[in-house]
Simulated assay, not measured.
Amino acid sequence: PDLGPISPSVFIPLAEEMGIVSDISTFVLEAACAECAKWPAQTSVSVNLSAKDFRSRDIVQKVREALAKSGLAAHRLEIEVTETALLDDKSLTRESIEDLKALGVRIALDDFGTGYSSLSYLHKLPLDKIKID
Protein backbone atom coordinates (compact mmCIF):
# COMPACT_ATOMS: atom_id res chain seq x y z
CA PRO A 1 0.00 0.00 0.00
CA ASP A 2 2.86 2.42 0.67
CA LEU A 3 4.54 1.89 -2.71
CA GLY A 4 1.47 1.75 -4.92
CA PRO A 5 1.16 -0.45 -8.00
CA ILE A 6 4.19 -2.55 -8.93
CA SER A 7 4.88 -3.19 -12.60
CA PRO A 8 5.11 -6.78 -13.88
CA SER A 9 8.54 -5.83 -15.27
CA VAL A 10 9.59 -5.49 -11.61
CA PHE A 11 7.75 -8.32 -9.87
CA ILE A 12 8.05 -11.06 -12.53
CA PRO A 13 11.88 -11.15 -12.47
CA LEU A 14 11.73 -11.15 -8.67
CA ALA A 15 9.21 -13.99 -8.67
CA GLU A 16 11.44 -15.95 -11.05
CA GLU A 17 14.47 -15.31 -8.86
CA MET A 18 12.55 -16.38 -5.74
CA GLY A 19 11.27 -19.52 -7.47
CA ILE A 20 7.57 -18.66 -7.13
CA VAL A 21 6.73 -17.64 -10.69
CA SER A 22 5.25 -21.08 -11.49
CA ASP A 23 2.92 -20.79 -8.50
CA ILE A 24 1.80 -17.38 -9.75
CA SER A 25 1.32 -18.76 -13.27
CA THR A 26 -0.80 -21.63 -11.98
CA PHE A 27 -2.99 -19.24 -9.97
CA VAL A 28 -3.43 -16.85 -12.92
CA LEU A 29 -4.12 -19.71 -15.34
CA GLU A 30 -6.80 -21.22 -13.09
CA ALA A 31 -8.38 -17.83 -12.32
CA ALA A 32 -8.41 -16.76 -15.99
CA CYS A 33 -10.00 -20.04 -17.13
CA ALA A 34 -12.63 -19.89 -14.37
CA GLU A 35 -13.57 -16.30 -15.23
CA CYS A 36 -13.61 -16.87 -18.99
CA ALA A 37 -15.92 -19.87 -18.53
CA LYS A 38 -18.53 -17.39 -17.19
CA TRP A 39 -18.26 -15.11 -20.23
CA PRO A 40 -20.13 -15.41 -23.55
CA ALA A 41 -19.03 -18.42 -25.65
CA GLN A 42 -17.38 -16.29 -28.35
CA THR A 43 -15.03 -14.68 -25.81
CA SER A 44 -11.60 -16.10 -25.12
CA VAL A 45 -8.77 -15.36 -22.71
CA SER A 46 -5.02 -15.12 -23.14
CA VAL A 47 -2.53 -16.01 -20.41
CA ASN A 48 1.18 -15.24 -20.44
CA LEU A 49 3.44 -17.99 -19.15
CA SER A 50 7.06 -17.40 -18.23
CA ALA A 51 10.05 -19.06 -19.84
CA LYS A 52 10.51 -20.93 -16.56
CA ASP A 53 7.02 -22.42 -16.92
CA PHE A 54 8.06 -23.92 -20.25
CA ARG A 55 11.20 -25.44 -18.70
CA SER A 56 8.89 -27.53 -16.51
CA ARG A 57 7.48 -30.76 -17.87
CA ASP A 58 4.21 -30.28 -15.98
CA ILE A 59 2.99 -27.13 -17.77
CA VAL A 60 0.74 -29.13 -20.11
CA GLN A 61 -0.81 -30.96 -17.16
CA LYS A 62 -1.41 -27.64 -15.36
CA VAL A 63 -3.23 -26.28 -18.43
CA ARG A 64 -5.23 -29.51 -18.77
CA GLU A 65 -6.26 -29.32 -15.10
CA ALA A 66 -7.19 -25.63 -15.31
CA LEU A 67 -9.42 -26.33 -18.31
CA ALA A 68 -11.03 -29.35 -16.64
CA LYS A 69 -11.58 -27.56 -13.34
CA SER A 70 -13.17 -24.53 -15.01
CA GLY A 71 -15.05 -26.34 -17.77
CA LEU A 72 -13.59 -23.89 -20.30
CA ALA A 73 -13.35 -25.18 -23.88
CA ALA A 74 -9.68 -25.40 -24.87
CA HIS A 75 -10.11 -23.28 -28.02
CA ARG A 76 -11.11 -20.35 -25.78
CA LEU A 77 -7.68 -20.33 -24.10
CA GLU A 78 -4.64 -18.77 -25.70
CA ILE A 79 -1.25 -19.31 -24.10
CA GLU A 80 1.37 -16.67 -24.73
CA VAL A 81 4.97 -17.84 -24.79
CA THR A 82 7.88 -15.42 -24.89
CA GLU A 83 10.68 -15.60 -27.38
CA THR A 84 13.01 -16.19 -24.43
CA ALA A 85 11.26 -19.50 -23.69
CA LEU A 86 11.84 -20.64 -27.25
CA LEU A 87 15.51 -19.83 -27.08
CA ASP A 88 16.13 -21.34 -23.63
CA ASP A 89 15.23 -24.92 -24.53
CA LYS A 90 13.89 -25.24 -28.05
CA SER A 91 13.13 -28.95 -27.93
CA LEU A 92 11.29 -28.95 -24.58
CA THR A 93 9.37 -25.76 -25.43
CA ARG A 94 8.45 -27.11 -28.86
CA GLU A 95 7.22 -30.35 -27.29
CA SER A 96 5.11 -28.43 -24.76
CA ILE A 97 3.66 -26.19 -27.48
CA GLU A 98 2.75 -29.22 -29.60
CA ASP A 99 1.12 -30.91 -26.59
CA LEU A 100 -0.85 -27.75 -25.78
CA LYS A 101 -1.98 -27.50 -29.42
CA ALA A 102 -3.11 -31.13 -29.21
CA LEU A 103 -5.36 -30.10 -26.31
CA GLY A 104 -6.93 -27.49 -28.60
CA VAL A 105 -5.30 -24.47 -26.93
CA ARG A 106 -4.15 -21.61 -29.14
CA ILE A 107 -0.52 -20.44 -28.93
CA ALA A 108 0.80 -16.90 -29.37
CA LEU A 109 4.44 -15.87 -29.51
CA ASP A 110 4.70 -12.75 -27.36
CA ASP A 111 7.30 -9.97 -27.56
CA PHE A 112 8.74 -11.06 -30.90
CA GLY A 113 11.47 -8.61 -31.79
CA THR A 114 12.80 -8.02 -28.28
CA GLY A 115 15.34 -10.84 -28.28
CA TYR A 116 17.11 -12.97 -30.84
CA SER A 117 14.16 -12.69 -33.25
CA SER A 118 15.03 -15.31 -35.79
CA LEU A 119 12.43 -15.92 -38.46
CA SER A 120 13.88 -19.37 -39.08
CA TYR A 121 12.27 -21.04 -36.06
CA LEU A 122 8.84 -19.51 -36.65
CA HIS A 123 7.90 -21.87 -39.47
CA LYS A 124 8.87 -24.88 -37.34
CA LEU A 125 6.45 -24.10 -34.50
CA PRO A 126 2.66 -24.54 -34.49
CA LEU A 127 1.91 -20.91 -33.59
CA ASP A 128 -1.47 -19.27 -34.06
CA LYS A 129 -0.31 -15.71 -33.54
CA ILE A 130 2.89 -13.68 -33.42
CA LYS A 131 2.80 -10.50 -31.37
CA ILE A 132 5.48 -8.12 -32.58
CA ASP A 133 6.93 -5.77 -30.00
Results as ranks from 00 to 15, higher is better:
Val45Phe: 08
Ser44Met: 10
Leu86Glu: 10
Val63Cys: 03
Asp2Leu: 15
Asn48Leu: 10
Thr93Glu: 03
Val81Cys: 08
Asp110Leu: 01
Val21Arg: 04
Ala32Met: 10
Glu83Ile: 06
Ala34Phe: 01
Ser9His: 14
Glu80Cys: 12
Ser50Lys: 05
Ile79Ala: 04
Glu98Arg: 14
Asp58Met: 02
Leu49Cys: 05
Ser120Trp: 00
Arg64Glu: 12
Pro13His: 10
Ala66Val: 02
Pro40His: 06
Leu109Gln: 07
Thr82Gly: 09
Arg55Phe: 02
Lys129Met: 14
Glu98Thr: 14
Leu119His: 00
Thr43Lys: 09
Leu109Phe: 10
Ser118Ile: 05
Leu29Glu: 03
Pro1Lys: 05
Thr26Trp: 00
Asp99Lys: 15
Glu83Val: 06
Pro13Ser: 10
Arg94Val: 03
Glu65Trp: 00
Lys62Tyr: 00
Asp133Ser: 14
Lys101Ser: 13
Pro8Glu: 14
Val60Lys: 07
Val81Ser: 09
Tyr116His: 14
Leu3Ser: 11
Arg55Gln: 15
Glu16Trp: 11
Glu17Ile: 03
Leu103Asn: 05
Ser56His: 11
Asn48Ile: 11
Thr26Gln: 07
Ser70Asp: 07
Ala37Trp: 04
Val60Leu: 06
Leu14His: 05
Phe27Arg: 07
Leu72Val: 08
Leu49Val: 07
Arg57Tyr: 07
Ser25Met: 01
Leu100His: 03
Ala66Ile: 02
Leu122Met: 07
Glu98Asp: 13
Ala32Asn: 05
Ile20Ala: 02
Arg94Asn: 14
Ala74Phe: 09
Leu127Gln: 08
Pro126Ser: 06
Met18Gln: 12
Leu122Asp: 08
Glu98Gln: 15
Val63Gly: 01
Thr114Met: 14
Val10Gly: 00
Lys69Pro: 00
Glu16Lys: 10
Ser44Cys: 11
Leu127Cys: 06
Arg94Thr: 15
Cys33Arg: 07
Ser96Tyr: 04
Phe112Gly: 06
Val28Tyr: 03
Ala73Met: 11
Ala31Asn: 11
Ile79Phe: 06
Glu16Asp: 10
Gly71Ala: 04
Ser117Trp: 02
Lys52Met: 09
Arg76Thr: 11
Val63Ser: 01
Ile79Leu: 11
Glu78His: 09
Thr93Leu: 03
Arg64Asp: 09
His123Arg: 15
Asp111Trp: 13
Leu92Asp: 00
Ile97Phe: 04
Phe54Thr: 02
Ile132Cys: 12
Val21Glu: 05
Leu67Ala: 03
Pro5His: 10
Leu49Ala: 05
